[in-house]
């Protein structure tokens, strides 16, 4: 992976490291629980887990301020937890209950929070890219300095609307950061089988958009690159592209037999590149936290996730009258 590494001597604080550890662990444990509930038939339809990619959203959320917006694809649970949406509301939406963020009417792929400036959760591959640029358009129109993070995968990177959006975003200097979460597989098709392009961020250069490849398994590298991109956008210099080299441990969705990659490849990533283990090692090796400290965090996270699962099971299904509500604003 030719992506940028985090600085050799990181000046990251203990508090930040503990925060990243906690937030990444929450996503992982939450997703494991979601996978379990899916297996029990409590979650239906499509369910795309974020396990393995946690450092990307946690590192970028560390660069945001109030009013910044985010929008992503259907692999959205991690983004919601990272921007501060409650685990209970997300899990209850997965089970299709009235306590969910969309009152049970959206599901795994369609959740939103006006309060946390999270604009979905989109099931059509690539659609969130112009939509995200539109959020940035509104901020620029109103004259504030907020930025929008538009996340999409290496698969979506081959959709035409992405390049229509690059063209207008640069033309109009929109404050949008295009975050390509390159996990190397578009469902079951590897990047090498989809394109001859060596990098995906490099395509933005044709439109005049600067960008770079980042080690997306290293939360410190993500945070550093994010800070640079945010500064570029907030200063009114237009869009920026971050190609996050990451990896998903689980299948594309719950019904993915994963025959397109070897078990060894997955295991190697888990053993050598795991984002959570990385921060855990940093904390322990530098003496910033003890095993006991981390165990306490682990237990807290487990409790939050278990409570969310209990809530998601107990929250009632939507009233039948909800069928006909919210069709119009």
């Amino acid at each position: 992976m030719a992506a940028k590494k985090s600085p050799e001597k990181s000046n990251v604080s203990k508090d930040d490291l503990l925060k990243y550890y906690r937030e990444m662990l929450l996503i992982r444990r939450f997703e494991e629980k979601a996978g379990q509930l899916y297996g029990m038939g409590l979650i239906g339809g499509f369910c795309h887990l974020y396990i393995g990619q946690e450092a990307v959203v946690v590192g970028l959320e560390a660069c945001t301020k109030e009013g910044d917006k985010r929008i992503t694809s259907y692999r959205d649970h991690g983004h919601m937890l990272a921007c501060g949406m409650g685990a209970k509301g997300v899990m209850a939406e997965l089970t299709g209950r009235s306590g969910g963020y969309s009152r049970g009417k959206g599901g795994s792929m369609h959740m939103f929070s006006r309060e946390k400036h999270f604009y979905g959760g989109h099931g059509i591959v690539g659609a969130q890219v112009p939509l995200g640029a539109g959020l940035a358009f509104a901020d620029k129109y109103k004259g504030n300095d907020n930025v929008t993070f538009a996340y999409f995968g290496d698969g979506a990177a081959n959709q035409g609307q992405v390049y229509e959006t690059y063209n207008m975003a640069e033309l109009w200097a929109l404050p949008v950061i295009f975050v390509i979460e390159n996990n190397h597989y578009a469902m079951g098709t590897s990047q090498a089988r989809s394109t001859k392009s060596e990098t995906l961020f490099g395509r933005g250069l044709a439109y005049g958009i600067p960008g770079e490849q980042v080690d997306g398994m290293d939360v410190l590298a993500v945070q550093a690159a994010g800070a640079k991109a945010v500064a570029h956008c907030r200063a009114g210099n237009g869009p920026y592209i971050l190609e996050m080299m990451t990896y998903r441990y689980r299948g594309h969705s719950m019904s993915d037999p994963a025959k397109y990659r070897t078990r060894e490849e997955v295991q190697k990533m888990k053993d050598e590149k795991d984002a959570i283990e990385h921060v855990r090692d940093l904390l322990l090796n530098a003496g910033l936290a003890s095993e006991d400290d981390l165990k306490t965090i682990d237990k807290d996270i487990k409790d939050i996730v278990n409570e969310s699962a209990e809530f998601a099971k107990e929250s009632p299904e939507p009233e039948l009258s909800e069928l006909y509500t919210n069709i119009y604003a």
């Binding site: 604009y119 890219v129 939509l131 539109g134 959020l135 509104a138 129109y141």
Partner: peptide, 11 residues
């Protein structure tokens, strides 16, 4: 798509 996003953004 940009216009729809702008509508969500308050325009």
């Amino acid at each position: 798509g940009i216009a729809v996003g702008a509508a969500w953004g308050g325009l």
